[in-house]
C-alpha cells in the first residue's frame, strides 16, 4: 500500500471513530444543560419586565420546550443527522447561521494565537536550551514563569491600559472601527490592528507553556545516545541541534498544541469578553445565561468536531516529523 492511500484510510477510520464520540458528547451535554433551573422563556420574559403565564406557555409550545426531555433529545438528534442545528429562539436566527457568523472571529484569533504561541514558544525554548544556564536562559525562564502565572483577564486589562490608554497605539476593544466602517483593504488593516492586543494576551499564557516544554524537551534529547553518536561522528553542534535534536524535541510540543485547541476556546471566553471580540466563546457564555440550549449544543458540537479534526491533523504531522511513527 502506498503512503498516501495509507493516510487516507487512516483519516477515514478516525473520522468514523469520531462519530460515536460526538454523539456521546451531544447526549451528555443535552442532559447536563437541561439540569439547570429555568429555561429560555423565563429569561426572555424576565428581561421583558412582565409576561402573562399564557404567553409564556405559548412560547414554550412554540420552542418545543413543553415536550418531555427524551422527545426533545430525539428531535434534536434527528435534526443533527441532517446537519440541521436547530433554531435559536433568543436570537431569532438559525443556530448554524449564528455559529458561522461568530466562528470566523474566533478562528482568526485562534490561528494567530497558535502561530504566535507555538512559533515563539519553540524559538524561545530552543534559545534557552542552547544557552543553558546563561543569562539568556535565565531571562527566558523567568519571563515564561511570570506569564504562565498571570491571570489572562489581568494581562488583557493591563494591555489596554498601556497600549490603548497611555500609548494610544491600539483600540481598546471590538473588531472594527465603528465610526469609520472601512471597506476593502482598509478594513483588513483595521481588523488586523484590532487583533493585536487580544492575540498577544491569549498567546502569552500558551507561549510560556511551549517555551518551558520546548526547553525541557530539548535538554532531554541532548542527553540521548544518538546525540553522543552524532558528536562522535564529528558533526557540528549546530547540525546536531537543528537536524537531529530539534525534530525529536518538537514531538511533545505538537502533541500539547493539539490537545490545547479545545482549551483555547475556553480561554478565549475571557479574552473575547475583555476585548469585546465577537467570537464563539462570548456567544457560548451569553447563551448559557440566556438558557439558549440549542445554540449552546451547536457550539459544543462544533468545538468537539474541531478537537477531533485537530487531533487527527496532529497525528499526521507526527508521522511527517518522525517517519518511525506510522499512521495505522
Amino acid at each position: 500500500m502506498t503512503r498516501s492511500s495509507k493516510i487516507f484510510r487512516f483519516v477515514l477510520k478516525r473520522l468514523l471513530q469520531g462519530i460515536p464520540i460526538i454523539l456521546a458528547i451531544v447526549i451528555i451535554n443535552f442532559f447536563l444543560l437541561n439540569m439547570a433551573d429555568g429555561d429560555a422563556v423565563d429569561v426572555l420574559a424576565g428581561e421583558a419586565g412582565s409576561a402573562t403565564p399564557e404567553y409564556m406557555a405559548e412560547l414554550r409550545a412554540k420552542f418545543g420546550l413543553d415536550q418531555p426531555l427524551p422527545v426533545q433529545l430525539f428531535v434534536y438528534l434527528k435534526n443533527v443527522v441532517v446537519l440541521d442545528l436547530g433554531y435559536s429562539f433568543r436570537h431569532d436566527m438559525p443556530v448554524s447561521e449564528l455559529i458561522v457568523d461568530r466562528f470566523w472571529p474566533t478562528a482568526l484569533l485562534m490561528v494567530s494565537t497558535i502561530l504566535l504561541a507555538v512559533g515563539f514558544g519553540i524559538l524561545l525554548g530552543l534559545l534557552a536550551a542552547m544557552r543553558l544556564n546563561t543569562w539568556k536562559d535565565a531571562v527566558i525562564t523567568v519571563f515564561a514563569l511570570i506569564t504562565y502565572a498571570t491571570p489572562l483577564f489581568w494581562v488583557g486589562l493591563m494591555m489596554i491600559v498601556v497600549f490603548s490608554l497611555n500609548l494610544g497605539w491600539f483600540p481598546t476593544s471590538g473588531m472594527e472601527n465603528v465610526a469609520a466602517f472601512y471597506e476593502g483593504w482598509d478594513r483588513v488593516k483595521d481588523i488586523a490592528v484590532h487583533l493585536v492586543l487580544p492575540t498577544i494576551t491569549l498567546s502569552l499564557f500558551y507561549l510560556a507553556l511551549y517555551t518551558r516544554m520546548m526547553r525541557a524537551s530539548m535538554l532531554e534529547q541532548y542527553g540521548q545516545d544518538y546525540v553522543i553518536t552524532a558528536r562522535a561522528k564529528g558533526l557540528t553542534e549546530r547540525r546536531i541541534t537543528f537536524v537531529h535534536v530539534l525534530r525529536n524535541a518538537l514531538l511533545p510540543v505538537v502533541t500539547m498544541a493539539g490537545v490545547q485547541v479545545g482549551a483555547l476556546i475556553g480561554g478565549s471566553v475571557i479574552v473575547e469578553s475583555v476585548f469585546a471580540w465577537p467570537g464563539l466563546g462570548m456567544l457560548a457564555f451569553e447563551s448559557l445565561f440566556a438558557r439558549d440550549l440549542n445554540l449552546l449544543l451547536g457550539i459544543f458540537l462544533l468545538s468537539s468536531v474541531l478537537v477531533i479534526v485537530v487531533n487527527l491533523i496532529v497525528d499526521i504531522i507526527y508521522s511527517l516529523l518522525d517517519p518511525r511513527i506510522e499512521v495505522s
Binding site: 483577564f153 486589562l157 489596554i160 481598546t172 465603528v178 469578553s273 469585546a276 457564555f285
Partner: peptide, 15 residues
C-alpha cells in the same frame, strides 16, 4: 456598541 467587560467599557470611554 456591546462591550461585555465593565473595565473595558470604562477604558473605551476614557479613550
Amino acid at each position: 456598541r456591546f462591550i461585555p467587560d465593565a473595565s473595558t467599557r470604562t477604558a473605551a470611554m476614557e479613550n
